[in-house]
Amino acid sequence: MKTSRWLYFSVFLLYFFLLGPFVIIFIAAFGAESTLAFPPTGFSLQWFARIVETQQFIDSFWTSLWIGLGATAISLMFGIPVAYALVRFNFKGMSAVETLFSAPILVPGLVIGFSMLNFFVLFGRIEVMTGLLLGHTAILFPYSVRVTSVSLRNLDPAVEEAAVSLGANRLRAFMLVVLPNMRSGIAAAFILGFITSFNNVPVSLFLTGPGITTLPISMLSYMEYYFDPTIAALSTVLVIFSILLVQLAERVLGLSRFI
């Protein structure tokens, strides 16, 4: 009995510290004061209206959306073949390749951002949008490889051989048999990749340029000048957006296992 009381208490503490800040932001977003306050004294939706009125947020939202979708798609286009090679073949230097592909997870984002700034902008003179796209593709790549590898590992290699023995060449066997069976892994990698890109600060910080910025960066710069609940309102919207996205993923992926 004593253990279970301690257990409840520690679970409560955990949730309190994890969710508490969200709850405060969520409530403060509906406040009437012009500075962020808790508890708020009145109720108002004006800060939500302010988001839509702020052109900076609208522009950067679209930038983030396109960068997120584009970078995820490109990273998967290259990540799936790499995952396939890592899972199906055994070659010299395989572990080196694996380590190389996980490097962007292990290296601090600021370091990646800074080196990309040097490489893309100063050295390569690449446009801001292209730089952002390439930078995000690079950080998403390891996720694409890892997540799709899991669904590949779960697919019996004999299935592919069966397709080949029935007359499909390697490429057709991959397209007709392997790829369709990786779809839940690909969908999961897509959602994870998109969220990672959408939330990224350290790499974007270095690669955004005049007139082009991502949503998290524009939120940061807004907060340097204003301390009204607009950011709280925007955060609330983003949290709800993320939850919906994950729910959707669960629906689609959960269902696909039974269909």
């Binding site: 004999a158 051989e161 069966a162 397709a163 029935l166 007359g167 069976n181």
Partner: peptide, 30 residues
């Protein structure tokens, strides 16, 4: 000769059916 040109039917220990296809489409594959 490449394996897909051999016209050999193979039955595997793990069955190796195509999980995403119906029984009809599995059999129709070849």
């Amino acid at each position: 000769l490449p394996p897909n040109k051999r016209d050999i039917g193979m039955v595997f220990q793990s069955y190796a059916l195509f999980p995403h296809l119906t029984i009809f489409d599995n059999v129709a594959f070849g």
